[in-house]
Write a protein that binds this DNA or RNA. Structure first.
Lengths: 145, 145
DNA sequence: GTTATTGTAATTATTGACATTACAACAAAA
DNA sequence: TTTTGTTGTAATGTCAATAATTACAATAAC
């Protein structure tokens, strides 16, 4: 299975909020229009980002905003906020290896640290990219430089 | 979503084949016993590993074996063989960003290379671990050192 | 108060994972 | 050559996650 599109959606949402913050009120309907997903899905993602303190959402009056510098929000923050993997574990281990078998009894101990290393490598790379990078590259493309 | 347990299952299967190769005929039923998953699932995984040239399976007479040195089979080889992610793409991108929106039109171009970097970081780490590492650590635990 | 919007529940469709039953194809031993 | 054990594969079922959609109460500004 792939990592849920909630993640790329969330990044798209951040890019929109930043790009359009001065021109429009960036509502869930507006964001649904740009991402082409249902407004309710957008609101769920905004809810998760809000719970992580990464966005502010104006109830009633409407509109989302980003309450801190883009350089302080990494793709890892977003990845964690939208909870793409259960328990934060990238690999799904088969549930009940047979403990009566020498291999089944030890497979977890053998594999766990290695899988963790792989996961950390991925998360480290995610944490090295921030929304400021996204903003810069998006602006460059939009301005057609 | 997490990466399918087919991956950890496959590694478990390799460990079993190696550990028990001299004592038992390692059949799909035997492997099903150690992993605690259905023998048909084991056969499907063995089929994928066989297609990738990572195992040999004796039709009729039964039993699986590993046709090359453990040090030449990496976790990345296994990961690719069992096809845990579609198209080899770790991240599922939302399908139809609105091309009438400056952000929707450019989000792919902005994100693709960054996501690829993250994916490569993970795959590089996977490729640095081989079945020889698994064999060594498994043996150490089984022998109680 | 009217209006626009958010937060959330409920329902549905679709997809992948994994389990399970069943059986033909196959290979080796009796 | 029949018997036995095994593989490969199809068909079916269950379960969980994703995502779309409808509906509506709670909220905030005008």
């Amino acid at each position: 299975m792939q990592i849920s599109s909630r993640f790329t959606l969330a990044v798209h949402i951040f890019a929109c909020i930043d790009v359009f913050k001065d021109e429009y009120k960036v509502t869930s309907d507006f964001l649904a229009g740009s991402t082409n997903v249902n407004p309710v899905i957008v609101r769920k993602i905004l809810g998760q980002l809000k719970a992580a303190g990464l966005v502010e959402v104006a109830r009633g009056s409407g509109g989302a905003s980003i309450p801190k510098p883009l350089s302080e929000i990494s793709l890892l923050d977003i990845y964690n906020a939208v909870a793409c993997v259960e328990n934060g574990e990238l690999f799904h281990f088969h549930e009940n290896p047979n403990s009566d078998c020498p291999v089944g009894r030890n497979i977890h101990a053998v594999l766990d640290d290695k899988l963790m290393r792989v996961q950390k490598a991925m998360e480290t790379e995610l944490s090295s990219i921030t929304l400021e990078d996204i903003r810069r590259d998006t602006k460059e493309l939009i301005d057609g430089k």
